[in-house]
Design a protein around this nucleic acid. Sequence first.
RNA 1: GCGAAAGUGGCGGAACUGGCAGACGCGCCGGACUUAGGAUCCGGUGGGGAAACCCAUGAGGGUUCGAAUCCCUCCUUUCGCACCA
Length: 834
Amino acid sequence: MPVEYREEFDALERACQERWERARASAAPVRPQGRKFYCLEMLPYPSGRLHMGHVRNYAIGDAVARFNRMRGFQVLHPMGWDSFGLPAENAAIKHGIHPARWTNENIAAMAAQLRRLGLSYDWEREIAAHRPEYYRWNQWFFLKMLERDLAYRSRRWVNWCSSCRTVLANEQVEAGRCWRCDSLVGRKELEQWFLRITRYAEELDAELDRLPGWPERVRAMQRNWIGKSQGALVRFPILDGPGQARAGALEVFTTRLDTIFGATFCVVAPGHPILASLPDGSPEKARVRAFEERAARRDVSRAGAEPEEKEGVDTGLRAQNPFSRERVPIWVANFVLMEYGTGAIMAVPAHDERDHEFARKYALPIRTVVVPPGSGQAAAAPQPAMVEDGVLVDSGEASGRTSAEARLILLRRGEEGGFATGTVRYRILDWGISRQRYWGTPIPVLYCDGCGVVPVPEADLPVVLPEDAPLTGEGGSPLAQVASFVNAPCPRCRRPARRETDTMDTFFDSSWYFYRYCDPRNDKAAFDPAIVGGWLPIDLYVGGITHATMHLIYCRFFAKVLRDIGLLERGEPIRNLLCQGMVLKGGTAMSKSKGNIVDPDDMVRRYGADTTRLFTLFAAPPEKDLEWNEKGVEGCFRFLEKIWRLVMPRASTLAAMALPAPRDGAEEPRLAALRRKVHQTIERVSVDVQKRLHLNTPVAAIMELLNATQEFERSATPKDGPYLKEACVTMALLLHPFAPHISEALWSALGGQGSVAEQPWPGADAGWLKEEQAEVVVQVNGRLRGRLVVPASLPEAEVLERARGDARLGALLAGRPVRKTIYLPGKLLNIVLE
RNA sequence: GCGAAAGUGGCGGAACUGGCAGACGCGCCGGACUUAGGAUCCGGUGGGGAAACCCAUGAGGGUUCGAAUCCCUCCUUUCGCACCA
């Protein structure tokens, strides 16, 4: 009695994994020769336990990696750890475990889980962000950016999470709440290090159009985030204010210069510098100050929430519309943002909803200057605002022109007059990277009373994170309390200086790790550009959609910086991006709080790695959410059991046989049908994985082949052996990307030499893909009326004759003139009657 | 509101360039083997109809010999952005 799969899978999978490891089956060469494929999955945070989202992510990547290895590519498929960050520090505060120990133990546990899944990583390239030999290059990149004025220090209002006691990037604030702990985000003013990502805003935006291998929604999200908008800066001279006349001008940004003759007032944001010019002691100043204080208070908890009621006060300042020469009031109001544009706007209530709402509330004038094309002069103010482009009225020389023309005409005039400039603005802000945290990369600068900000010399890198910082969760940066770290001589003057005590945002770590994988043990440089040049770009990057705007913008920014430094050839590191869907249970994401977690270890114990992986691939296409279904898992397990039961009892017999010659069996329908199915399956699996990146349909195709082979086997005689063998061997090969362990067992049982992983991917024989006897679908007036089995090459006229000869079809066609026919050879005949 | 994606059996999903709707799996129904079956194997399974046929891919229209697929209008869901001037 042969061994059942149920009893065998665990030992079998472990044995395979040991063999692969011993044989270094997944090791990539230093430099690829010939065709290369860089297959990458997003760097995980070592939380300590794998979840199903990880398993799905890695099963997808591994299927693609194994497939391409068999296709003869040299595949780089690495894995590592995004091992700096808050949870390690929180664990230290809560349980008194040192972050390093916690992190290392978690890495060991998760690496063991990954190994048990049989993922084909080149573990010799493993990296971890918290190791000095890695983060030293963070520091080196930071120094390079400092040299190029891409890193700078600035005092700025930042998002402050009082629970995590740290600064958050805008991207880390979701609807006014901390992306990790979900508590309300406040504001605080701090000296921060920034990276000048805005210098690359234009390129980051423009190149989105040249990333055809990226999902449209990710590109849309990035476009939105970068927020490019074309417009003009217009200077409104200040005419007078409370108590006195004054010089100067208010600069506003607008994308609707065509509406400028309708600008009946200006609005500045709270905190706008012009407000400081109000004379102390004036009632206007008091009014404005009171308003600003109210606005600032509200700002703290409302960031990202619903827009609030528009409010403002008249500053008493008056400016002149440089186009219409009209005198307009300047207001301060809560709906204008200091962070965007110039922090000041011209308000055109007739043609902007927000301005309209504000003007109604405070009874400010509303003047129509754009009307829909074809309508005459509009007298009354539109209600609500008419925001679309149209034709201008009451706008001087631009009257009668379209909005688009008017924008050009007015801009030219403004430029000639010296009061307007065409410009482009971006919503994206510079990337604040300072974190008041311990478990991160120390920022390599010192502060010297004599020399100011002094970078740590390259030769002194890495600035190593001290081990003994007090982690209490209170106070500012833990490093500030480590005297032996803080106090260091100034590299320039040698006098006592203080080290920077903030650490880097961990997105810095993950912005360049995929270069390091190419050259992971280099201790002279972050990487050798020649080696990286051979492997990049990443041919497939698989990860969650959650990183669409943060990680995936930062790493594009890094690529451009590294290109400009001369380390990279290209500024876009990722050719194809696959954002896999979430793994759900009961319609929602698995989470501890919902108690709906499915434990990967548990699945592997009960069904094995192959089944667990197979289910995550089979149940849904990669980019869609996947609903976990235990019955579906059992279905996948049954599939592997069936193939096992088909092959194993016959394996030794089949192993002794030869495969059939290329055209053998062509005359006998049973044999031909099986061979055709074999080759059609090869074709389907190959095309779906390679061209469409669909992994559920290839699995389904192999299941079909199994069903066909089982049926064939039931009526098989000993002389059918070679054909049965061909089907079984093909299944063993095709299955390898999806269920690699069982494929090895089937392969060697069938007499295969070496590992399946080393076999060339089977090619479909074109001769078997063509059906010789084709089933032609016959339609009458576009409706399905019958089928005919005919030789595939039969001419149209004869197919029509046979249709007439068919009892049922003949009856339908009899006596009715044919207007025309449409014939797809071997597939379909549509007979259109009068 | 703006942007993106998606609506197909009881469920997950398939249908590549417009050409047999529902592959494959789950579930369900029936049968075989069995002391038993929640194991295994075989058969069936969109709806209506005795049948010929008819109806059916969110709704309605259109293009076409032919539409799940293309076009228009609308509805719903998910995601992202949201006072960005």
